[in-house]
Design a binder for these strands. Structure first.
Length: 197
DNA sequence: TGCCAGGCCCTCTTTAGGGCCTT
């Protein structure tokens, strides 16, 4: 585990229902390497997702806080993400905040839907849940949301719910935490489609 | 138009309820 490459990811979606939401933005960060792409969702966004993410779809185009966003078809987003992950020397660990609750089920379902799960499985060895990890590392702090953790450990606020910024902040947090390998392993989970559906 | 999740964890628990965390 110590030599595993960890790629920090975040995704924005049309809602919180992992069984049906669409991906709007997917970002990944590993050191200086950055992946960040957007897709126009086909599902309606929930009101809370609109409010939280700032995304809107008008006339088949994606806007964030009023600005037009460049998008790609969802299949292109997924295949280019797999290509990005394939650029690392070994299968990587994908780390995200509450990854087991949200990002992993969504990614797994959408990859399967587009018949890309076998390729995804080739380049990803596991999921590291930084929410669960932070609770184990710091059992007595007040809140474990990513915004709270960034405020507490990095002393700053940021553009939360922009997936690229979220992924970058998560990488910064991890570098400050320097978690023991045992705790990282305890909060890393295998990639398995049967975990979710 | 109105619909809007769910598994884990904690405790004032276990014959359960509520808050957290992700969008």
């Amino acid at each position: 585990m110590a030599d595993k490459i960890i790629v920090f990811i975040d995704l924005e979606a049309t809602g919180l229902d992992t069984s049906q939401c669409d991906i709007i933005q997917l970002a990944a960060v590993c050191e200086e390497k950055v992946f960040n792409k957007f897709a126009v969702p086909h599902q309606h966004m929930t009101d809370s997702a609109k409010e939280v993410t700032g995304f809107r779809v008008r006339s088949g185009r994606l806007f964030r806080r009023g600005s037009l966003v460049e998008t790609v078809p969802i299949v292109d987003l997924l295949t280019s993400f797999i290509d990005f992950l394939r650029s690392f020397r070994d299968p990587v660990v994908l780390a995200a905040h509450s990854v087991m609750r949200f990002d992993a089920p969504v990614l797994t379902r959408v990859m399967k839907k587009h018949h890309l799960f076998p390729q995804f499985q080739e380049v990803v060895s596991g999921f590291l849940d930084t929410f669960l990890l932070s609770k184990r590392l710091f059992p007595n702090i007040r809140g474990y949301s990513q915004v709270s953790l960034v405020s507490n450990f990095l002393g700053k606020s940021y553009d939360a719910h922009n997936a690229e910024e979220d992924a970058k902040m998560l990488q910064e947090l991890y570098k400050v935490w320097r978690p023991d390998e045992s705790k990282v392993v305890a909060n890393t989970f295998k990639v398995n489609e049967k975990y979710f559906y």
